[in-house]
């Protein structure tokens, strides 16, 4: 976490906490940086919803570390609505499919993506549209970050990783789209220890691996 500085843009994988690397979030809260722009699907789950502790991005929000959140759904965490109302937090809403493709575009070296999603809505305000074969598309630009915090169910020491079941979410595309990628992993194996087809994301994206990620306790 040493490299994450005030004002940086950080991507956080997961969906309502599932697939989010909690140990990395905890470490970032402990480091205590400010004025972050966070790109994530949502605002995590507050303790009022989990019944125990904040989960995922909610920890960063509760600690007041975020100035701007770029997400698709923020309704589960009332801190965001409150922050927007009193002007302490900026929130940019992006349709979930567009969010995934904007991130992927950055990671794949594309200048943007053309999507029919959002055409004719307030999401299209200020954006370029193109008509291709008679159908209108919105140009959505790439979203890049300084850091991505991703979660793996299993990885090897090269950084190849996989996320089991519904923990995949944004982890793969975010690993592609940040200058520095930190992986929080449940299980870390030696290179060559498991079948090569175990892994779905190439280790070339990953810079650091932290073991010790735990399954969420209900």
């Amino acid at each position: 976490m040493a490299g994450i500085q005030d004002g940086m843009t950080v991507m956080v994988g997961g969906f309502l906490g599932t697939g989010t690397p909690e140990i990395l979030i905890d470490a970032l809260v402990e480091k205590g940086v400010k004025h972050l722009t966070v790109i994530a699907n949502d605002g995590g789950l507050p303790a009022s919803v989990t019944g125990t502790t904040d989960r995922g991005v909610a920890k960063l929000l509760s600690a007041g570390m975020i100035d701007h959140i770029i997400a698709s759904h923020v309704g589960m965490n009332p801190i965001i609505g409150k922050g927007m109302n009193d002007g302490t937090l900026k929130c940019t809403l992006v349709p979930q499919g567009s969010l995934a493709e904007k991130i992927r575009a950055a990671g794949a070296g594309l200048g943007g993506v053309l999507t029919p999603t959002g055409v004719g809505t307030i999401i299209a305000d200020g954006k370029e549209t193109l008509t291709i074969e008679g159908k209108e598309y919105l140009l959505e630009l790439p979203l890049h970050a300084d850091y991505a915090l991703c979660r793996a169910s299993i990885c090897d020491k090269f950084g190849n990783f996989s996320c089991y079941k519904a923990t995949k979410n944004f982890n793969h595309v975010m690993a592609m789209a940040a200058d520095t990628v930190i992986l929080g992993a449940e299980k870390v194996v030696e290179i060559g220890e498991v079948d090569v087809d175990t892994f779905t994301t190439a280790g070339v994206y990953v810079n650091y691996i932290v073991g010790g990620e735990q399954p969420w306790q209900i």
């Binding site: 759904h73 923020v74 309704g75 979930q96």
Partner: peptide, 11 residues
């Protein structure tokens, strides 16, 4: 009113 976000609805 309190904003929730579109999530996946627009897509």
């Amino acid at each position: 009113k309190m904003v929730a976000g579109m999530g996946g609805a627009m897509d």
